[in-house]
């Protein structure tokens, strides 16, 4: 079953920490997280400057209720962690992960810094991103190297393409094997897979809201819960795409109602043609033409899926309220 992540990560912006106008304006966009980048968007001559900005940026990012996350450099791990692990940081993203020992080393450093800086042990999660063939080959070793690895994915994108020497934005899925290996490793280790259905992107656009919505919607229907992007225009469409609709919620309640009936009969499953179900009732199943189809099986699996959907709805609602209140508080204090 899709486990519900402890922290919601439906939408997030990755932005160069050395560009104050991005960081200072990101807090009110409604992101679940803001990923302060020390890596690719920061030129080599500004890495020191960038490191010095993380600590003071955390409260800026936090003030609208977004989680503060930091992407470090693969080759500057120790210095970057030292700059990033401060109270308020919830996750460190590690690019181009290739070996389990890298993650073990990260875990040691984070554990020490948490202790020294008064952060509750185990607070800071690791997002390990696979971007090379070596990383794919060692996927299971990497994801199991630390219990902090709660976000594990990749095996596609710019660096992966460069490592394999392939063009980006072709019309077919080039990375079936690598993505499969990484997702299987995440699932085998009992971690939330950071994955999504393949949708061709031959334009390479990072700011198209329609595309962002379609991707998030497809990901949600497929059971995935993690998003993120580079452009403010995709934040709201992602939040919308990851939200369950009223029809889906009613459908989930209907499934649970039918499952309770079924459980009393001693049989383990039943098939229902939803076109014969009273569509005026409440709760009611989605229509026969919905993405769930006409002939619906009710069994333990569908019931657990329905339960998860309702929990997800509640989590999203709580998280959205939390962020809205935080933004309102800031606005109110600014008005004074």
């Amino acid at each position: 079953m899709a486990s519900t992540p402890r922290r919601l990560k439906r939408s997030g912006l990755t932005m160069p920490i050395v560009t104050p106008r991005f960081i200072n304006n990101a807090w009110h966009r409604g992101c679940d997280f803001i990923n302060m980048d020390l890596e690719d968007s920061v030129p080599p001559n500004l890495k020191d400057v960038a490191r010095n900005l993380v600590r003071e940026s955390i409260p800026v990012v936090n003030k609208g209720g977004s989680d503060a996350v930091c992407r470090i450099n693969h080759d500057l791990m120790e210095a970057d962690l030292n700059a990033a692990i401060w109270p308020g940081i919830t996750q460190v993203n590690y690019p181009k992960a290739e070996y389990g020992h890298e993650i073990e080393r990260m875990d040691e450093i984070i554990t020490r810094l948490e202790a020294e800086r008064g952060i509750r042990p185990g607070t800071v999660e690791i997002g390990a991103n696979i971007e090379t063939a070596v990383g794919v080959a060692n996927a299971y070793e990497i994801v199991t190297a630390s219990a902090r690895v709660m976000d594990f994915g990749g095996a596609a994108g710019y660096d992966m393409s460069r490592d394999l020497g392939v063009e980006m934005f072709v019309s077919f899925d080039q990375f079936v094997y690598g993505k499969g290996e990484v997702e299987l490793a995440a699932r085998a280790a009992g971690r939330e897979p950071h994955a999504a259905p393949f949708t061709p992107n031959i334009t390479g656009s990072v700011s198209d809201p329609d595309r962002a919505f379609a991707e998030a919607d497809a990901a949600r229907k497929c059971g995935f819960r993690i998003g993120g992007g580079l452009h403010p225009a995709v934040v709201e469409p992602q939040i919308r795409g990851f939200a369950s609709s009223d029809d889906e919620i009613s459908d989930a309640q209907w499934v649970l109602q039918e499952y309770r009936k079924l459980a009393r009969t001693g049989t383990t499953w039943v098939q229902i043609d939803v076109s014969t179900v009273d569509r005026e009732g409440s709760p009611r199943p989605m229509g026969a033409d919905s993405y769930l189809g006409r002939h619906r099986v009710i069994d333990r699996y569908e019931a657990s899926r329905a339960e998860e959907l309702l929990q997800w709805r509640d989590l999203c609602r709580e998280r959205d309220e939390e962020k809205a209140e935080a933004v309102a508080r800031v606005r109110a204090s600014e008005a004074e």
């Binding site: 079936v176 094997y177 993505k179 499969g180 997702e183 299987l184 994955a195 259905p197 393949f198 949708t199 497809a218 229907k221 497929c222 059971g223 993405y291």
Partner: peptide, 14 residues
Amino acid sequence: RPEPSGEIHLMQYL
């Protein structure tokens, strides 16, 4: 679960 294409996610690989 099914992807928009109708293929069940991860199944081709598995």
